[in-house]
Design a protein around this nucleic acid. Structure first.
Length: 338
DNA sequence: GTGCATGATTCCGT
DNA sequence: ACGGAATCATGCAC
């Protein structure tokens, strides 16, 4: 990040001995010097920003390094905030940036600072009015100058803080853009779940967590994967026929093997995959257990106990039955041909 | 280098 | 908040 770019504090001109000059003149001089220093800092900072931008660099964040660090911390914390999944999965949202900006500005430049300084200067002038005449016009002029300066500083701070935040944000986004293909293990786990729940490929939060754990990826990545998969499957069902068949066969075979083990059926399940612990084998292959099948199969009475499905998905998808090897309707494979 | 596959991001509707 | 759709950006085989 940018190094602190504040100029070395300028030494104000040595003050003349008080008795040798009129008090009013002295005070004005000091104030003029303060204003000059502030002006110089702002102008120099802007000039530097302009020069950097001209060299193709990002505008310099006119913030001390500790401020940048805390901004980085804040952005990182935002990303880890589980209450805000959009942030963690898709970058820092504008509202979060605005909150962050307001927070940093309030910290850097408390709103009462201008009031306090104005009061301070006003008191000084009142004190001076005991030894020299201080007109109300002079008082107003001074207050006006202070307000003007504070506004300028605030504007500068706002701009530089905003730039710093945006720079950090773009860096974080760039880092996230770096894509790596999932491992074979992760893809298998996700595909097996997808094709075995083809009529309703919307894993619950718990299932996503389990899939993420099994695949060694994050829950956000699981969500992204299912989002992409649903869209791409729907767009080109034919292309996925082979894949569907492969995973269908795989899961049905695994089911037969596990089915002989005999497992109790799940009586009430709110969503597929959330029926007790997600049925994954320790070897990494995800298989449907009888409990999941019991959920997917229509009950003897004919009333289907499927969870609320996404009608748009069912309406839009009319997948060709992938040459089902089993072909028994009502079984797991019927799910695929739905 | 090119084209496709795929994970990530963004926008928008519900 | 979540999902669909479009899009971007990268990985990878050729």
């Amino acid at each position: 990040m940018a190094a602190p770019l504040r100029p070395a504090p300028q030494q104000p001109a040595p003050r003349r001995p008080a008795p040798a000059a009129p008090l009013g003149r002295d005070t004005s001089d000091v104030l003029q010097q303060i204003m000059a220093i502030t002006d110089q800092s702002l102008d120099e900072a802007q000039a530097r920003c302009g020069a950097q931008a001209g060299r193709g660099q990002k505008a310099c964040p006119e913030l001390p390094s500790d401020e940048v660090c805390s901004l980085q911390r804040a952005l990182r914390d935002q990303g880890e905030d589980r209450s805000c999944p959009r942030v963690s999965s898709g970058g820092v949202e504008p509202a979060a940036l605005t909150r962050l900006l307001s927070h940093r500005l309030a910290h850097l430049f408390p709103p009462q600072a201008c009031r306090e300084f104005t009061t301070h200067v006003t008191n000084l002038l009142r004190e001076q009015s005991r030894v020299r005449p201080v007109s109300s016009r002079e008082m107003e002029h001074m207050v006006g100058m202070i307000h003007g300066k504070f506004t300028a500083i605030q504007r500068q701070l706002k701009q530089s803080t905003c730039e710093a935040v945006m720079t950090l944000r773009s860096r974080l986004l760039d880092a996230r853009r770096k894509r790596r293909n999932f491992s074979k293990q992760a893809t298998e786990v996700l595909n097996e779940y997808f094709y075995s729940h083809l009529s309703n490929p919307y894993p619950s939060e718990e299932t996503k967590e389990e899939l993420a754990r099994k695949g060694g990826i994050t829950v956000s990545q699981v969500s992204n994967w299912f989002g992409n998969k649903r869209i791409r499957y729907k767009k080109n069902t034919g292309k996925f026929q082979e894949e569907a068949t492969m995973y269908t066969e795989k899961t049905s075979t695994a089911t037969k093997v596990r089915g002989s083990g005999g497992q109790s059926s799940c009586q009430s399940t709110p969503s597929p995959g959330s029926c007790g612990p997600f049925p994954l084998t320790s070897g990494g292959d995800m298989v449907l257990t009888l409990r999941t099948l019991a959920f997917l199969q229509p009950p003897p009475g004919g009333v289907c106990l499927q969870p609320p499905t996404h009608s748009s998905w069912q309406r839009a998808t009319a997948p060709q039955p992938p040459s089902s090897p089993a072909g028994d309707s009502g079984s797991f494979n019927s799910d695929v041909s739905n």
